[in-house]
């Protein structure tokens, strides 16, 4: 197993992810969300909340009261949260056909 531990934040540059996401094309599904937090309280109890960090588009956002909200429209369907959420608290499926991220270059 990896001996890797937490990396201090100051070694990393600050990145404004929302600007970077402007480069991504989405077909946003306004009628149906494909991601959801299964149980809000579970997030409150989750101490580490690694989703705030590991999501490559920063879709997981900490809310007041320790709940977590998903900015579903920025999801790129990578699956990281499905695999990594410690309490397995993300209901994850693909968006409906034709919706979601649409890479222009890939």
């Amino acid at each position: 197993m990896s001996k890797q531990t937490k990396i201090p934040q100051e070694e990393l540059p600050e990145v404004y992810i929302d600007d970077i996401l402007m480069s991504i094309k989405y077909f946003t599904d306004e009628q149906e969300f494909h991601l959801a937090i299964k149980d809000t309280d579970t997030c409150v109890r989750c101490v580490d909340k690694p989703c705030i960090n590991f999501c490559p588009v920063g879709a997981y956002r900490l809310q007041e009261g320790g709940t977590v909200q998903i900015a579903v429209q920025s999801c790129i369907e990578c699956g990281t949260c499905r695999v990594l959420c410690p309490p397995n608290n993300v209901s994850w499926k693909y968006p409906r056909g034709g919706f979601g991220v649409a890479y222009k270059f890939g």
């Binding site: 197993m1 890797q4 990396i7 070694e11 990393l12 590991f54 490559p56 920063g58 990594l84």
Partner: peptide, 19 residues
């Protein structure tokens, strides 16, 4: 990077890339 290492590191992937 492996998901295992990513989770433990607490690093934001886009910050790792920016670095």
């Amino acid at each position: 990077v492996t998901l295992e290492a990513l989770r433990k590191s607490g690093v934001k992937p886009y910050e790792l890339l920016q670095r």
